[in-house]
Write a protein that binds this DNA or RNA. Structure first.
Lengths: 132, 132
DNA sequence: CTAACGTACAACCAAATGGTTGTAGATGAG
DNA sequence: CTCATCTACAACCATTTGGTTGTACGTTAG
């Protein structure tokens, strides 16, 4: 997740993604379009690749870059969930599922003495992840 | 945009967002939940704030943090567009995003001789932006 | 075979991140 | 008033990023 959003947090990288929407492009082809060195573009592509947003496929001596729709879909969905939660949709659903009449309210009391909630790794996602 | 995605590209920050879904929380309350200093959490909140994802509102001596659903909506929508373009659903949009007058077909030819396309700032967004 | 192209990768650098501690200003409780 | 909280912000540090150049390797064109 971190890697996914990080990859998207750069104008050049988003532009590369958009460029590859219409079809595979070799890295050098891509590099021609930006005011930076080939190596720099190469690195950007590597970031996108580690994030699972694109895949490279060798064709002759060229390396074609192609986007992976599903990866973007995953990111979009994550935001979707967040947004839903916000709007309370999930809240009602959760209450239904747990038939908890009323409780978890952060209302005001809840003397935080007990469990400060030790930080939760991250979402319940189980997609992948390791390395960096 | 950069700031938006960058803000989302951190586990702690996403967790803060999730925590504030159920209600406003003071910064110190938030800080209690993480294995880091108050100042660190303060910085994370600042990042979220600059990205427009949360707003702070003073209440007495506490600073309540509240999420802004619309900001997440904007990010989600950006990804939505990307995904759509991918799937070819919105061919016209892809053309808009890349402002390539025509012949956008990835066909195979297109002897790249013409215009290397000098890099386009970023999407057509006009939200705000500068600095880093 | 040789030359040119496309790629990969290491080394290096300035700037930004994510974290720390310390100090200082407001505000509310006693 | 005085003290304890909550917050803001500066200074500092280690690591990462985004960029550069240079070198080496595989593949295709002549």
């Amino acid at each position: 997740m971190d890697r996914l959003f990080h990859a998207l947090a750069d104008t050049t990288r988003r532009d590369i993604l958009r460029r590859c929407v219409r079809g595979e492009l070799s890295v050098s082809r891509l590099a021609e379009a930006y005011p930076m060195s080939f190596a720099a573009v190469q690195k950007h592509v590597a970031v996108l690749e580690r994030a699972g947003l694109v895949t490279k496929q060798r064709s002759g001596r060229e390396q074609l870059v192609r986007t992976d729709p599903d990866a973007v879909g995953r990111a979009r969905q994550a935001l979707d969930e967040l947004e839903s939660a916000w709007r309370g949709r999930v809240d009602r659903m959760a209450r239904l599922l747990a038939d908890e009449p009323r409780s978890d309210e952060p209302g005001s009391d809840e003397p935080r003495t007990s469990t400060p909630r030790a930080f939760d790794p991250d979402e319940k996602n189980t997609t992948e992840g390791s390395e960096r």
